[in-house]
Amino acid sequence: MMRVMKSIRMIAAPVIAVTFILVAWQIAVMMSGVSAFLVPSPLAIGQTMWASSDRLIGGAIQTAMASTIGFVIAAVIGILVGSMIAAVPFLRRSLYPLATILQMVPLVAVAPLLVIWLGFGLPTAIAAATVVAVFPVLAATIDGQVSVDPGLREFFLLHGASAWTRWRKLDLPASIPAIVTGLRIAAGLAVIGAIVGEFVSGYGGPNAPLGIVIMTAMREARTDLVFAAIALSAVVGFALFGAVSCLGWLLVSRWHASGVNSLEQSK
């Protein structure tokens, strides 16, 4: 019963906050008389969402696809390259600073290059999502694996474990909590990367992605549609973040500090 009440409280708090913001926004628009071109009311945005649902849902599916594929590629590259960098001190000294510097380069500046290399369309959006999402996973993997308990490493050394065995049975599982944190950050960034990729790669058609819907609506002076597309892109980001969080919870909740605390509280 206590757990049900706790769950209700956890869900109720953000729902109340969002409702309050929407109501305040609606009242502010109505009272101020600001033009719907500048700031449409939440009700007007809702009506646009309903009226353009086919276009928005089709766009959201395209963006979700680009974000998810880009995120998965970033996760695989980040974990594998991060593990190699963590395992080899020379790579740690040479590649890690380079990766940090590359991460500072703004995606918007790189995106045109991706168009030159990959052309217009989905591959550029996927690549843009990968480029921005890969660094948090890489950094989290390296941090997680270099901070594995030296005592446990010694235990594996004593038992003659090879580097491959140690990675599979110690380094990788021990770094999962850190990797999950990196993946959660990467999930949000992947959606941002995909939208920027869509902005520059400009592929349209009946199922134009949300980035194109936003650009087209802007040119058509449809601020309500811009807001509706932004809201849906946030939903895509939240869904990806939620999926990664659930996966992380399944992997580490039984033994990681947060999960252990909840186990003890549930006794």
Binding site: G151, L152, E154, A174, W255
Partner: peptide, 10 residues
């Protein structure tokens, strides 16, 4: 056997 148990937490 060391001072700390050195068990894999997972």
């Amino acid at each position: 056997c060391f001072q700390d148990a050195r068990l894999l937490p997972w």
